[in-house]
Design a binder for these strands. Structure first.
Length: 425
RNA sequence: GGAGAGGUGACCGAGUGGUCGAAGGUGCUCGCUUGGAAAGCGAGUGUACCCCACAAGGGUACCGGGGGUUCGAAUCCCUUCCUCUCCGCCA
């Protein structure tokens, strides 16, 4: 949720920022919010003074009763009662305005950082880095959804039997590869100073609201019936919510957490012919890095997190490209996002394996995650997160890029984790 | 799942309708004291919003969450969540 103070104090910047997202009437939307805010404050002011008067009279009643002046007290009671009735109406008005303002703010996306490029389509994302050479494959090279059958390491039919589409069963070396990748990612993050967290993978409604999955994106999460619990779509939700309603000290910063969790996504409506095999799943494994940082250092942290992701991909020998997402492609809550895509040679496609974002105060405003400054004043912190990494697509690229005639070579860095260097029949 | 107890500020812990944003203690900050430290003494020490210059100052709300009774509630009533103890069940 945007801070009302930002809209109030930097109106023009907010308008031009939102314009990058192709929101045409941004100026109109924002002035509406400011109008509501103005009314809200005016109502608050008169409500408060009414209540102040009623409180003063109430106290007086206490004194009058003790002094035995019953008649006077009786009259004050009546007066106070009237005041309270007026206050009640104002209170209702005030609550209505608060809700309206909040709703309006919920519907406004984050303001893109000024380095976010203009653009509407994914094709307009800015290529900022490219690494690695494309593998040269045999002409009989296969996409991973064929390879996994050949070597019997991942079984979609079985998953279908147990659950449904998008819930694969990993077997033998397939299962081992997943475990190896998770452990590799966790170890790398730990070495980079991240504290490992193993959170619940089921969260309540409050948590979903705080990180913004609710109320607008219910379609993304699986809800558990007969409770207000949800399966998490990413470890970001439980890990970030650890810090909901907290005030950190400057010395606590930066907070760096990493967590491995399965992630569950309904992906309602996004199932298509181009989404095969491991490219898009309803359940998948992901290692997520999260940082909470001082506003002055958050963009440095964003850079640091990108370098971390790049290092993982390089060690895994996967050719990748890094994209600075344009306004139109930017996630609702993000101020700036870099996507990492690896090249999967078997299907000749770039697969998004990591998305690293700075949310600035957009999340912390709802989370009420603040920091006590040296001047004793509280201010909102910045949150950042990124996948490091999304396992199935990494696995897909490894399988495809390292295939040879009778097997698949495992990247060297993974061998200590897998215990084998080749997948073969 | 059954029975009972309880949720108060950073922490411990008073408070059963009026002057309680909340006694007392601990912790923390600043000052005095000291060669230095400890002890001691004094002052301060929550969050959000509103007025105002985001100053000083003032106001409102908040004693797990929500609702109610009352002129007035941390205190009474309803509801919900959570914690603890005992019993049962169980990886």
């Amino acid at each position: 949720m945007l801070e009302i103070a930002i809209i109030r104090d930097h109106f023009d910047q907010a308008v031009s920022g939102l314009a990058k997202r192709n929101i045409k009437d941004a100026g109109h939307l924002l002035s509406e919010v400011l109008d509501l805010d103005k009314k809200r404050r005016e109502t608050k002011t008169s409500l408060d003074s009414l209540l102040a008067e009623a409180n003063a009279k109430s106290k007086e009643i206490g004194r009058l009763i003790q002094a035995g002046e019953k008649e006077q007290a009786k009259q004050f009671k009546q007066e106070t009662s009237d005041l309270k009735n007026q206050a009640k109406d104002l209170q209702d008005q005030f609550n209505l305005l608060v809700n309206k303002q909040q709703e309006a703010l919920y519907n406004l996306p984050n303001i893109p950082n000024r380095k976010v490029p203009m653009g509407n389509l994914a094709s307009e994302n800015e290529l900022v880095e490219e690494w690695g050479d494309f593998p040269t494959l045999d002409e009989n090279a296969l996409p991973h959804w064929n390879l996994i059958n050949t070597y019997d390491i991942i079984d979609f039919d079985l998953g279908n039997k147990l659950t449904g589409a998008g819930f694969p069963v990993y077997k033998g070396k397939g299962a081992k590869l997943v475990r190896a990748l998770v452990n590799f990612c966790l170890d790398q993050a730990e070495a980079a100073g991240y504290l490992e967290i193993q959170p619940p993978i089921v969260v309540n409604e409050t948590s979903g609201l705080a990180t913004g999955q609710l109320p607008d994106k219910e379609g993304q999460m699986y809800a558990i019936s007969d409770s207000n619990y949800y399966l998490i779509p990413t470890a970001e939700v439980p890990i970030t919510n650890i810090y909901r309603d907290t005030i950190l000290d400057v010395e606590d910063l930066p907070v760096k957490n990493v967590g491995y969790t399965p992630c569950f996504r309904r992906e309602a409506g996004s199932w298509g012919a181009d989404v095969r095999g491991l490219n898009r799943l309803h359940q998948f494994d992901k290692v997520e890095i999260v940082q909470i940082n001082h506003p002055e250092h958050s963009y440095h942290a964003l850079d640091e997190m990108c370098k971390h992701v790049a290092s993982l991909l390089q060690q895994l020998e996967l050719p990748y490209r890094k994209l600075n997402l344009c306004g139109g492609d930017l996630g609702f809550t993000s101020a700036q996002t870099f996507d990492f895509e690896v090249y999967a040679a078997g299907q000749d496609k770039w697969l998004e394996v990591s998305s690293v974002s700075n949310f600035e105060t957009y999340q912390t405003n709802r989370l009420k995650l603040r920091c006590k400054g040296l001047d004793k004043k509280n201010f909102l912190l910045h949150t950042l997160n990124g996948s490091a990494l999304a396992i199935p697509r990494i696995l897909a690229a490894i399988l495809e890029n390292n295939q040879f005639l009778h097997g698949i070579r495992i990247p060297e860095v993974l061998v200590p984790y897998t215990g084998f260097d080749t997948v073969s029949k």
